[in-house]
Nucleic acid binder design. Structure first.
Length: 425
RNA sequence: GGAGGAGUGGCAGAGCGGUUGAAUGCACCGGUCUUGAAAACCGGCGUACCGAGAGGUACCGGGGGUUCGAAUCCCUCCUCCUCCGCCA
């Protein structure tokens, strides 16, 4: 969430940011509401503190009087303190309610978009930041979509997944399973080469963790929930990886911290069904290698562009046609200040498939997480960034479709040492 | 899952219900001394909130309670350790 001091000092910028996001005009008063609640909070806190200070003083005196044996004076003072206690309880309750209301409102305010975020309302307004290559590959006349290729080569099976679990849980087999494992290893190796520390995190997380990265309460419906143990299946490795640094105070010399992790990701994604979610285009369980960085506020945008370059490099090694989009205000994630999406072109479907999303959250996540660093005598919130490098299922879809030949699927050179075969047939 | 023990500052480790935000040691930072270093000595050394400041308030695993007053007493939850059971 946004920092109160930031809102107070940059009210116009925050309002402008909300407009960029197409936040409804009639709800813009939320900013004023928040500042007013904060004033109320401060007043209550000030008064409560003075009441408590008085109580503490009297209590000390009472202690002294008892030692001196002045019991009557002490008793009189005790009655006085009892009154103060009632007042303190009232103020505490008021403070608690104000804080709750404040937090509730604050949760409704999205991050302030970076100045480079283009205006717009839907994904059609996203800016093509970088096309690559200039020319799109022409699909062969008889090009098959990946779900048909899957049947042809017996590499994954959605019906079996449905039998075992339910729709949207693919089962990979044979060379398909091997391809999956190869991609994971390849992505992890690339990230480690780029200086990221490899992490294997837990796949279930508790409530505090889900709240810190903003899955709760914003995206509760997106997560699978294990009620008996009050745990959530992670929708992305971002959740456990980022939470490693929850409630941590770093030193400036610790920056940048670079983590990577492979995990399965679980998403309920209740909603749309149809042709564009066929096959691996959208599933409830998929594999992903995530990269996460924690950085000094002055350097986080350099870091963001480095992360873009990393993802770009990996896609080029896979020889997949892709483009980078700068998300417009309307498409930008709630917690992000600036996001670039990577889309690979799926020749047979003649569609772009999103395979990565790289974002700078600035202090939005770190404020919830209390991730700080020492800045002179005080502390400051660090910046958090993350990106997919990369999400498997759609990469597989594009790879199968783009590389199909009459003899089989051609495996990109960079991947061959991982798959152990050059042709999937 | 059952029985017992424990959770205090970066670490170690004190703490009769009252002047303890918390002894002491180590680590760390600054200084004196030294050609330099070590040693020794002196000083500093948690976080958050309120306050222009002085200063105040809160926090001793989390939450609740008793009390004029709780790190210290009670309840509850969590975590860790030991033993038993089960187990990849």
């Amino acid at each position: 969430m946004l920092e109160l001091n930031f809102i107070r000092a940059n009210k116009e910028r925050v309002l402008q940011g909300l407009k960029t996001r197409n936040f409804p005009d009639e709800e813009l008063h939320i900013i004023e509401d928040i500042l007013r609640l904060d004033d109320t909070r401060k007043d209550a806190k000030t008064e409560l503190d003075s009441v408590l200070a008085e109580r503490n003083q009297l209590s000390k005196k009472i202690g002294g009087l008892f030692k001196e044996g002045k019991k009557e004076e002490a008793d009189a003072m005790r009655r006085q303190v009892t009154q103060l206690k009632d007042r303190a309880a009232e103020l505490e309750e008021q403070l608690r309610l104000t804080r709750e209301a404040l937090a509730e409102q604050l949760y409704k305010v999205p991050n302030v978009p970076h100045e480079s975020v283009p205006p717009g309302s839907t994904d059609e307004d996203n800016e093509v930041f970088k096309p690559w290559p200039e020319e799109l590959p022409e699909p062969g006349a008889d090009a098959l979509p990946h779900w048909e290729l899957a049947q042809k080569y017996n590499i994954f099976d959605l019906d079996l997944g449905t039998k075992i679990t339910g729709s949207g849980f693919p089962l990979y087999r044979g060379k398909g399973a091997r391809l999956q494992r190869a991609l994971i290893s390849f992505f992890l190796d690339e990230a480690v080469k780029a200086g990221y520390e490899e992490i294997i995190p837990p796949l279930l997380v508790n409530e505090d963790t889900a709240r810190a990265t903003g899955q709760l309460p914003d995206k509760e419906a997106q997560m699978y929930y294990v009620e008996r143990d009050n745990l959530y299946l992670i929708p992305t490795a971002e959740v456990p990886l980022t939470n490693i640094y929850r409630d941590v105070i770093l030193e400036e010399k610790d920056f940048p911290i670079k983590l990577t992790g492979y995990t399965p990701c679980f998403r309920r994604e209740a909603g749309s069904y149809g042709a564009h979610v066929r096959g691996l285009n959208r599933v409830h369980q998929f594999d992903k290698v995530e990269i996460v960085q924690f950085q000094h506020p002055d350097k986080s945008y350099d870091t963001l562009y480095q992360m873009l370059e990393h993802v770009e490099g990996v896609l080029k090694k896979l020889e997949l046609p892709f483009r980078i989009l700068r998300l417009c205000g309307g498409d930008l994630g709630f917690t992000s200040a600036l996001t670039f999406d990577f889309e690979v072109y799926s020749a047979a479907q003649q569609r772009w498939l999103e395979v990565s999303s790289v974002s700078n959250f600035e202090t939005y996540q770190s404020n919830r997480m209390k991730l700080r660093f020492r800045d002179g005598k005080s502390t400051r919130l660090a910046h958090t960034l993350n990106g997919s490098a990369l999400a498997l299922a759609r990469i597989v879809a594009a790879l199968l479709e783009n590389n199909q030949t009459p003899d089989g699927i051609v495996i990109p050179k960079a991947l061959q040492s991982y798959t152990g075969f050059e042709l999937l047939n």
